[in-house]
Amino acid sequence: MQTATPIIEFAHVNKWYGQFHVLRDIDLSVARGERIVICGPSGSGKSTLIRCINRLEEHQEGVLRVDGVELTDDLKAIEAIRRQVGMVFQQFNLFPHLTVLENLTLAPMWVGRIPKREADERAMQQLVRVKIAEQAAKYPLQLSGGQQQRVAIARALCLTPKIMLFDEPTSALDPEMIKEVLDVMIELANQGITMLCVTHEMGFARSVADRVIFMDQGQIVEQNTPAEFFGNPKSERTRDFLSKILAH
């Protein structure tokens, strides 16, 4: 699974929101095809970390490289990277004024410059992949939360990204819909795509992740394989956090 150059590289990355030091000296290497789960208490900077990868947030210090390209203010570089990185949000953020199919074909047509027919075909393939092809003509607000999130995943996949980022994808869903979304994510994971997932779903972490990272107060506190992480947590804070998460 380990290849020569990591696909994502954080080197001494620091970020501030005003005076608040939200990411402290992050050093992280993600290999191609690696699947990472990031967990931690709220406010620990986990969402900020992955949002730096597609430049939805800017870091002030340190070097962040994605697929060999360093992330700076260079707009061309940012656009190129966003084509390689797909993101799924907690609030789905589907475009309510477009049908499901139009949501999926928007970026391929306007960013990828792909003809409509080809874009439609690709979109239908992705909809089949997330098992929601029959809803193609519906509008997002006509679907349930779980269905909307699956459409959001399909939308991100339409650009055939090398990296998929998930920002608490199941946190806004009713319990009975979490499984359908996790199933899609598990299948994606098994197909070899690089994934970074911020989530509280520890079952998912145990079954799919190559590495689990625990963040607290802007730092990476501990990272390990799932077996070691859940079985033998090294830090006191990790143990504390796990006891709260796994209690129920």
């Binding site: 005076q19 402290r24 730092q219």
Partner: peptide, 22 residues
């Protein structure tokens, strides 16, 4: 800062390099 399996060290917060207040 911490590689796989290493025990963690606390990093204290710092002031940002480029001032944002003022």
């Amino acid at each position: 800062m911490s590689a796989v399996g290493e025990v963690f060290q606390l990093i204290p917060p710092r002031a940002p390099p480029v001032a944002t207040e003022g």
